[in-house]
């Protein structure tokens, strides 16, 4: 693989609280992430795990508290807005909410044309042709360019948002849950589109989501986040075949399998309680408060590091994974229950 498109090292983002309460919210607490040329990396985790914050820090919508972000080897962590302007064509973002992602007072054509105008990439008739080409590429009929966002459906709006992001031909696309607000049937169409476009245009993509099925479908590699840290990171096949971290195992067991027979017989691991507050995260391994196999005091005292547990770049941070890569099996612990035993 050639040079990496994105390299994130020890990214931290703390949101400070009002002075009276003292502390700060550790939304992101030391994240490393590398995305290669044309690679699609998934970032999953439940709400509050900090995955969206990572995305926003990368495109510099938020100022990172610590760490470095390199785009094509160039450090952009502290670049000023003016300096960033030249980098903006390299990275783009797709947003979650199809209703707020497009300016309600601009036509679809103007919205798609705006980035190219801002960066002076095209003008006049050439711009017209490019906009028409982009709309065609994302599967929007050409007459929609004169329409306003409120006249479009959610799926069409996400397509328009995608066309706007891809208009400058970025090498990195940060997609922050681009389909989670859409109907399932529309989700599939937009995901297929995203995958086709990725294959055609070859951009790298950080796909942020909480739906494991979409991530499995789209991504080459997946990083699982819990409470501001990455707990496991490996290629998609291995993650879904042999998850190592207890949290990943629980997450996977909670996902619905599209086979009713299999779904009925599956063991489901139900995690107790909610994700702990990132204002005052648990000591040691942050997952120990909910981990069904946690071994106290080891897990509550020392913080595990993210290490390669199999020798085939399968990163996981758990004390209980042995040197030969054997992982604890949460389905054997007592807190599990058969998916249908209670109903």
């Amino acid at each position: 693989m050639s040079e990496n498109v994105l390299e994130v090292r020890q990214l931290k983002k703390y949101f400070s609280l009002p002075r009276s309460s003292g502390g700060s919210v550790r939304a992101v607490d030391g994240v490393d992430l590398t995305i290669g040329q044309g690679e699609v990396v998934g970032l999953v985790g439940e709400s509050g795990s900090g995955k969206s914050t990572v995305g926003k820090c990368i495109v510099r919508l938020l100022e990172p508290t610590e760490g470095t972000i390199r785009l094509h080897g160039r450090d952009i962590t502290t670049a000023s807005r003016r300096q960033l302007r030249g980098v903006r064509t390299e990275m783009q973002m797709v947003f979650q909410d199809p209703y707020s992602t497009l300016n309600p007072r601009m036509t679809i054509g103007d919205i798609v044309a705006e980035p190219m105008q801002l960066h002076r990439l095209a003008r006049g008739r050439e711009l017209d042709t490019k906009v028409a080409g982009l709309l065609d590429k994302v599967g929007l009929a050409s007459h929609l360019r004169h329409r306003y966002p409120h006249e479009l459906s959610g799926g069409q709006r996400q397509r328009a948002g995608l066309a706007r992001s891809l208009s400058v031909e970025p090498s990195l696309l940060v997609a922050d849950e681009p389909v989670s607000a859409l109907d399932v049937s529309v989700q599939a169409a937009v995901l297929n589109l995203l995958m086709d476009l990725q294959r055609d245009m070859g951009f790298s993509c950080l796909f942020i989501g909480h739906d494991l099925a979409t991530v499995e479908f789209l991504c080459d590699r997946v990083a699982v986040m819990y409470l501001g840290r990455i707990v496991e990171e490996v290629n998609t096949t291995d993650l879904f075949r042999a998850p190592k971290h207890p949290y990943t195992q629980s997450l996977l067991s909670a996902a619905v399998v599209p086979d009713p027979k299999l779904q009925r017989t599956r063991q489901r691991i139900v995690l107790q309680g909610d994700i702990p507050s990132p204002i005052n995260p648990p000591t040691g391994c942050t997952f120990h408060t909910r981990c069904p196999v946690a071994q106290l005091p080891l897990c509550s005292d020392t913080s595990p590091t993210l290490t390669d547990v199999t020798g085939r770049s399968h990163l996981a941070s758990c004390h209980l994974i042995t040197a030969d890569g054997t992982a604890p099996d949460v389905t054997l612990s007592q807190t599990t229950e058969n998916a249908w035993s209670k109903t």
Partner: peptide, 13 residues
């Protein structure tokens, strides 16, 4: 806080 304003910032407007 609207996403289209955020998008404009990402576009270097």
């Amino acid at each position: 806080e609207q996403d289209y304003v955020q998008a404009a910032i990402v576009n270097g407007a």
